[in-house]
Computed example of a mutant assay.
Amino acid sequence: MMPRDASDANDRSGDSSDDSSEGRGRWSDLDRPPLNAAALRRALLRDGGLWSGVDVVQSTGSTNTDLVALAASGKAAEGAVLIAEQQDAGRGRLDRTWTAPARSGLFFSVLLRPAEVPVQRWGWLPLLAGVAAATGLSRVAGVDTALKWPNDLLITVGDEERKTGGILAERAGDDGVVVGMGINVTLREDELPVPTAGSLALAGARTTDRDPVLRAVLRSLEDWYGRWREAGGDPAASGLQETYAAGCATLGRLVRAELPGDRTITGEAVAIDRDGRLVLATEDGVQEPVGAGDIVHLRLA
């Protein structure tokens, strides 16, 4: 998600019922119809609700960077949702790229301003988004969705565990966080960027209609964000810590943590602590919390 500037994104914005810039009609791919921005607004925007605006753009580099720029310029309120039908320079964790064919997935970012929550607890936001996404996807698509620490979305294709989505959170000034999400919905086997990737379609989802899938994820995110905020960001009191641990496929596994500075730790993932860190029990009998890095699942412990 590496955008052109926000004004460029706005120049290409509008309801996705418009024809695309390549001159193809809205039904050029019957398996991948465009999102209905007007219907999404009717479904999601309500008095007293979190979501304050829903905008769909045909194409951009990155919804995350576009929304960070809009927030910095004062043009986005908390609850703004920016969705792209296609991203050509999406970013995941650790500066990895995320690309997919147009309308094959959901690529969106939301702006949150949790003023009631101490900043030191904001690190829970990407994990919260993971719980919300997994809950929403399981509910609407009927697929068993798990979490790889910290915030990859895993599904089962055949007998293989595959990644179908990821989450990236970035600060937006002193008082905000932009949370971006990419979810593979109708990606076919020959379109996968890597063999370990998956999609809702490949997992046998009962629906691959992106409109209800997006609504379910955003409603779940609104619910979890509200609980977390009301608890002052306390992960235990809000139920977030327990729910994340229950749905985390990393716990109970032997894993390798690849840390900054080319350091690695191998151990059994035994817990998620109050700071959202993954706790590893090593062969030396030491429990080491991991707050940042790449986790490789090795096998069940």
Results as ranks from 00 to 15, higher is better:
residue 149 W to V: 05
residue 300 L to M: 10
residue 125 L to S: 08
residue 245 A to W: 04
residue 2 M to A: 07
residue 127 L to C: 08
residue 169 A to M: 11
residue 301 A to D: 12
residue 40 L to F: 08
residue 196 T to N: 11
residue 69 A to D: 10
residue 157 V to S: 08
residue 138 S to M: 10
residue 217 V to Q: 13
residue 108 F to P: 06
residue 72 A to L: 02
residue 122 W to T: 14
residue 257 A to F: 12
residue 115 A to T: 07
residue 202 L to H: 03
residue 76 A to H: 00
residue 137 L to N: 12
residue 114 P to A: 12
residue 278 L to T: 07
residue 153 L to K: 10
residue 99 T to Y: 09
residue 116 E to W: 13
residue 264 T to H: 06
residue 94 L to P: 01
residue 261 G to N: 03
residue 49 G to R: 14
residue 14 G to D: 02
residue 284 D to M: 09
residue 22 E to W: 13
residue 287 Q to D: 11
residue 135 T to A: 11
residue 78 E to P: 13
residue 245 A to N: 06
residue 32 R to F: 01
residue 27 W to R: 10
residue 121 R to A: 14
residue 199 S to L: 09
residue 131 V to Q: 02
residue 40 L to P: 09
residue 301 A to E: 12
residue 232 G to L: 01
residue 291 G to D: 10
residue 138 S to H: 14
residue 289 P to K: 12
residue 115 A to W: 02
residue 69 A to Q: 06
residue 279 V to H: 06
residue 199 S to I: 11
residue 83 I to Q: 12
residue 238 S to K: 01
residue 185 V to Q: 10
residue 226 G to C: 02
residue 150 P to K: 06
residue 234 D to F: 00
residue 174 D to C: 01
residue 10 N to Y: 14
residue 135 T to G: 13
residue 56 V to P: 00
residue 60 T to D: 13
residue 100 A to I: 09
residue 208 T to R: 14
residue 191 E to Y: 07
residue 16 S to L: 03
residue 15 D to M: 03
residue 20 S to Y: 01
residue 290 V to W: 12
residue 275 D to G: 14
residue 165 G to T: 03
residue 161 E to G: 12
residue 145 T to G: 06
residue 178 V to I: 05
residue 146 A to Y: 02
residue 132 A to G: 11
